[in-house]
Design a protein around this nucleic acid. Structure first.
Lengths: 216, 216, 216, 216
DNA sequence: TATGAATGAGTGTTCATTCAT
DNA sequence: AATGAATGAACACTCATTCAT
């Protein structure tokens, strides 16, 4: 079935938009948002300055576009998260591993820029909060609540537990972005470390030591 | 012992420097780093534009100054951390509570600015990594290693465990700065939530359920 | 006699040209020349941006087109002016009235734009001077010269008298465009006021006062 | 009496402001408002681009400054206008002559720019209407009303008569700016022409012809 | 040491015009 | 002839920094 002319035009437009976004992601990751001039993006994309503005309202909209892409990949991850009916320890490990792989080295560079700008730009932040954080948390909450109800995990406050978990992951990313060499060296152990820490906690198992006890 | 004229001058200078830093902290927290003009800082400090440059090399140096102050308060917290020879659960709770209180609402505003800029400014980042992160982690590592060696806590990798813990704290701050309403509402429960999560983990205690088992 | 295909095409073209000119007149009058974008004209005319350039060389040519239309209506007024063999006072009144009516509220808006641009654009000015001012003045000059020769009007310098008269009219328009409220309120009295002032002058008629005399 | 430091600084500032305004007037007159870049003004004034903005809010404010100067000279002319207790014919001639001389060749160039922009810029227009037109007309109205009451001039509507007169003057300027060669050639006869036309009107004096009569 | 006026490099955005389709 | 996406030159304005006083 051949495309109608309209949809063809639309496809070309979408393609170029995506192309510009690729270029923007690249140069932003390389030079940072503020140091990057529109001209840099244009040159990287092989178009004229003005062409950018046929596809994005302004420079910030380029970041929004990048955010939307992250949004997309997050949406896919949410589906992945629902698969977690298997062994919990394995699921945790696999999920952290998956997120880590999805981000990748390049993703870290982009995250640096996006995080930095989002912290300081309310518009960006709102988009992120509404489109990504809120629905993700909502989904994961129901999911985990079920698991907790089934007695497979134990916590008093599912929403806060989720946030603490997500925060741990995000915080490690931020710490690495801050330049901690230890984290860079052991980046791959994160899934294991987090899984063990979150599931088992830091207290010694009963019988592991000389009788130290603890009460909650 | 009266101050010599030199040291008096020096004290006046230090005072004014501190005064300017107060002003900078305030206006940065309120308007962000980039949106704040040197003139804004000068007016808030009640001095002329040029005077700023007698005490700080450039605009970024103001952030560095703010960072140094955070550094100072962190150094004091490190001492506090060493006091942790009491009950571990109480210590965790008290420590998180202390950090939370130290930051405060206003500190969050400053953190937003400093974090954002640090993510993107290698110079700032290096200072932070060298002066704050590294020594803090080093100190806490030896401290915790001792506790682990004493069998009071259990973990395979103390450095990573510490980073995960610090990351969880930092990540929650970032998530809140991103605008998560849940976190804002339950901000005060963080010490409890984190303590329980970190010490006990998510897995149900033996006997809490119908015999589900887990292996590490 | 049916039109040949060529002339039919030509008619369609002329029609579209005129249509575009209508749109341009409207949006220029509404938003001014510089604030109006070609896209505004195109949208108002219901065509694409590029189409404008099939009918007009550039944006200024649109103003030229508007000027040409004013030219046309002025040509018709010239004929009207020749009808002035009736009572002079009536003719003056009727002529001013006619010009006022011809311009209308909408014409004032257009005049504002055209005048402003013409003052500053030599090309436009030249067209106006050559195509409109010069022939109009030439015609009116011969016409008035005849009337003066016939002793029905009295003046030393017909060309300057005509310019002063035209100037008075134009100047009142400009003053109104400048925002004088008095003129807006009494706009309709202009034909009477001008006629009386021009024909009778300001000096009191003989016998109207206590014998004041004047010499030219 | 030596100036206090404050007033000295203020004087220097006023001087530089005036200097910049001189430069702006010059380059605007030469190249027009829109074609003149801030850099042109700065170079003509021998200062940096940014310095302009220490004295004027924006480019338009430069025009406002020029307008204010015209305002000032007009205020002086108003005083001049009050001197008109002498022979009316002489006063008219002298007044027109004075205005013509005040404007001069250079003033015409400036007027071209200011008029053009004012026609199209409501902000500028309002300033002009409020600060210049209204007070001028108000003053002249009371002045002429007195003369009319004294029977030395005759008119039904003083305000409109004044506007017609001012309009005639303004209109002649506009016509000349439009490029009429006749006006340029006989520019100096304007005071005489206008005076005669306004005072005596166009109708032949009684007895000058073969008995043509007219009624008002 | 404080001042604050002067500096001038730096850039996002607009929009008239072109031209491949 | 119509389209409308691409072009890229153009520019007002900001503001960190300097330095004469």
């Amino acid at each position: 079935m051949p495309d109608t002319p309209e949809s063809f035009q639309a496809q070309v437009a979408a393609l170029r938009r995506s192309h510009i976004l690729d270029a923007a992601t690249m140069v932003f990751a390389e030079q940072g948002f503020h140091r990057t001039k529109i001209r840099d993006v244009a040159q990287a994309a092989g178009v004229a300055d003005g062409t950018i503005y046929n596809y994005f309202e302004n420079k910030t909209a380029l970041l929004l576009g990048i955010l939307d892409r992250i949004n997309e990949s997050d949406r896919r991850d949410r589906d992945f998260a629902q698969l977690g009916d298997v062994d919990i320890r394995q699921f945790f490990r696999a999920y952290f591993r998956h997120r880590l792989d999805t981000i990748g080295e390049n993703g870290l560079k982009v995250l640096r820029i996006v995080l930095s700008e989002m912290l300081v730009n309310p518009e960006l932040r709102q988009i992120y909060a509404e489109r990504i954080v809120a629905p993700s948390f909502a989904l994961v909450e129901t999911h985990f609540q079920r698991i907790v109800d089934a007695g497979r995990l134990q916590t008093d406050d599912v929403p806060m537990m989720i946030r603490a978990t997500a925060g741990m992951f995000l915080g490690l990313i931020v710490l690495r972005l801050m330049g901690d060499p230890q984290l860079e060296a052991k980046w791959d152990t994160i899934p294991d470390v987090l899984t063990t820490l979150l599931l088992d906690g830091l207290l010694p198992s009963e019988g592991d030591n000389d009788g130290a006890t603890h009460e909650r």
